[in-house]
């Protein structure tokens, strides 16, 4: 029989990054939706509704950027579960097998997911794409933001983004990717819940404390 043992999987930087991402994405989405779908909330010009929305959006944007960069760094110094290899499972033999089995589990073709302690292989691959979307958001966001100060360090740092499209094209991308990330968030919470109930691995609580229940194969 299998035995469940507690294992420290998510180190504190991973957990902080996770929650900073959660809060900043939430804030960025709420303020971003207002910026895109402005509503007249002010009654006189002395109010500063859009001004504050944008301010909060930009601050959250910086927080998010720092968080994402930290996580990328941690992928090279953190434990095996945080390592960059988790995010490119297809590059390793085990990973490929794990991916296939997880996929079969998700489509109900296999009763149990394969053994995984950190991210399962499918999740790891998905996070790579999510991080790419994060980078798209960061680059389009800062490229658009930098327009307020042409010639500044910021605008020079992100000027290259405009080779991919006009400012309207970037803005459209910024909107669409937000919805993709929100769709991902739904998927993310569901999958974690699924693992939690299926595997009873404490997936949901692990992101708070870092400890997961792991099947120890006999």
């Amino acid at each position: 029989m299998e035995k469940l043992v507690a294992k420290y999987v998510w180190e504190w930087p991973v957990r902080i990054v996770h929650w900073v991402n959660f809060l900043s994405i939430l804030t960025l989405s709420v303020t971003g939706i207002y910026i895109g779908w402005a509503k007249t909330l002010a009654h006189d010009p002395s109010q500063y509704v859009m001004g504050w929305m944008r301010f909060v959006h930009f601050v959250a944007g910086y927080a998010f950027t720092i968080s994402v960069i930290s996580r990328i760094c941690w992928a090279f110094v953190g434990n095996e579960y945080a390592n960059w290899r988790t995010f490119v499972p297809w590059a390793f033999k085990d990973g490929r097998k794990n991916m296939k089995e997880t996929f079969l589990f998700y489509v109900f073709a296999r009763p149990r997911p394969p053994h995984a302690v950190g991210h399962n292989a499918m999740a790891g691959a998905a996070y790579l794409w999510v991080f790419l979307l994060y980078l798209v958001m960061i680059c389009t966001g800062f490229a658009l933001y930098a327009q307020y100060a042409p010639g500044s360090l910021l605008s020079r740092a992100f000027g290259w983004v405009y080779i991919f499209g006009s400012s309207q094209g970037l803005r459209l991308t910024h909107h669409c990717v937000m919805w993709l990330l929100l769709a991902f968030a739904i998927h993310h919470v569901y999958s974690a819940w699924l693992m939690d109930v299926k595997e009873k691995d404490g997936c949901m609580s692990s992101i708070f404390g870092g400890w997961k229940s792991v099947h120890e194969e006999e």
């Binding site: 402005a38 509503k39 007249t40 909330l41 002010a42 006189d44 109010q47 500063y48 509704v49 001004g51």
Partner: peptide, 10 residues
């Protein structure tokens, strides 16, 4: 100023 305030023509 109306943009920053949040006052828009609807």
């Amino acid at each position: 100023p109306h943009f920053d305030a949040g006052q828009y023509v609807e």
